[in-house]
Write a protein that binds this DNA or RNA. Structure first.
Lengths: 244, 244
DNA sequence: ATTATCTATAGATCTATAGATAATGC
DNA sequence: ATTATCTATAGATCTATAGATAATGC
């Protein structure tokens, strides 16, 4: 006898209270807002709750009820809670591995490509209003179910590593030790996950500053930053155009 | 009927199996290693488990049993699980706020002080083999019980902010926007929390690289880095001497 | 009497399954 | 027949308390 929380929906709100706009299936009991793509709504709710309360600290009940469903109804869309986390992590990283692929086809200096990659990576994270990044380090995310995610993550790390390596070869970059420089750069790129006030700034502004920080760390000639940034923004525009 | 895990200590290991070296109280049932400072051992075990499995994902049973105690015995040392987390977070941050206090008494350029602060901050995190940093963002850590921790955290952020402000005033630093530069710097300093391979490098080496990155981001004259680093290391030595 | 442990257990969860029910489509 | 929901519930946890027990100290 310790936990409190005497709440509980008390009376399940009679079935006639159905208000969902879905055309198929039994009407929903409760009436939480949801513009009727339940699967997507569940993902959004889960991302929000996971990033605020952690993975284990978020119950499937909390997720379901945030979108106006009963707890077991969530399992119609996701086989397990783990599946939810895996899909969210994959969704978070794919725009950035996509950017990496786009950059490979373009001809540009490694410095400009690295700037563009960092910029896009940070922009992607800063544009989401949830913060899933730290969840990937949990033991929960080390099972087979996350193999796809981890393959993408490795691909991204290798992308950063390769650009750094090329920049060093061309003497555009300089550093004391390449292996540690990789981790510093990857860490800085992800560091927006540790900002508590990320939403008081424009994502574009955050991305510029963080990409600047990465390049200032690596560039042999720090005065080249402005040029590199300009080149990088051109690359970003080129890829956006291509994809639309 | 879903979870598995058929284990359980089965038979509680008869009381005669006592092996603890403690002088007082009833002998322990199980025999997990522990060089008998149970309170400290619990903190170490909790830090390890929290950082691997998250706060909610770590049971008090797992913590207790890792140090060879039964689950309820843990509550002899910590009133609640929350108390454990609060103490761990405070222990993590106090060395760094201590360093900040030490720096205030010394006479040096803001750039050198900022380097020293970052270096010490990162060294402290990188020297621990657990990673508690990301846990502070959980909702669980927003209750009153964490007021002390949050006051220290604010003090640390303000310390960084003040040094940045002084450096800008003396024109040693340059940036586009001061408020965002603060967050960038604070983020970079903490970014080692996102390293997956932090233990493949020397903490001293990591700290040097990360502090370099911070200063390269802020310094108006990037060529001043080496001098700043040398000054900073002298400050660190001075504070260490004073404290011993 | 104090300290450190233990066993037993209350009461509140939690995830996932089973199977009913309602709406629609064929 | 299919889809989307619901209620009910199994069985496994989880945190914390109650109160017994053993060792030591006064």
């Amino acid at each position: 006898m310790t936990p409190k929380k005497p709440e509980r929906p008390a009376r399940p709100a009679p079935p006639e209270a159905a208000n969902g706009t879905s055309k198929l299936g039994r009407p929903r009991a409760s009436g939480a807002v949801r513009d009727d793509n339940p699967r997507q709504a569940i993902l959004v709710a889960a991302a929000e709750l996971f990033s605020r309360s952690g993975y284990a600290g978020t119950s499937t009940r909390a997720i379901a009820e945030q979108v106006g469903l009963r707890q077991p109804s969530m399992f119609h869309y996701f086989r397990t809670k783990e599946d939810l986390l895996a899909e969210l992590l994959e969704n978070l990283i794919t725009p950035t591995t996509g950017l990496l692929d786009g950059l490979e086809d373009l001809d540009a200096a490694p410095a400009a490509k690295l700037y563009a990659l960092t910029f896009g990576d940070v922009l992607n994270m800063a544009s989401s209003d949830t913060n899933m990044t730290t969840l990937q380090f949990l033991n929960d995310a080390r099972t087979e179910r996350f193999d796809t995610f981890w393959a993408l993550r490795t691909q991204l790390f290798d992308g950063y590593a390769q650009l750094i390596s090329q920049g060093l070869k061309s003497a555009a970059f300089a550093c004391r030790d390449e292996t540690i420089a990789r981790s510093v750069v990857f860490g800085i790129a992800d560091s927006v996950a540790l900002w508590e006030d990320a939403d008081s700034f424009e994502p574009h502004e955050i991305s510029t500053e963080v990409a600047d920080a990465v390049l200032l760390f690596l560039l042999a000639d720090k005065a080249a930053l402005e040029t590199v940034r300009t080149e990088a923004m051109a690359l970003i525009r080129a890829i956006r155009k291509e994809q639309s």
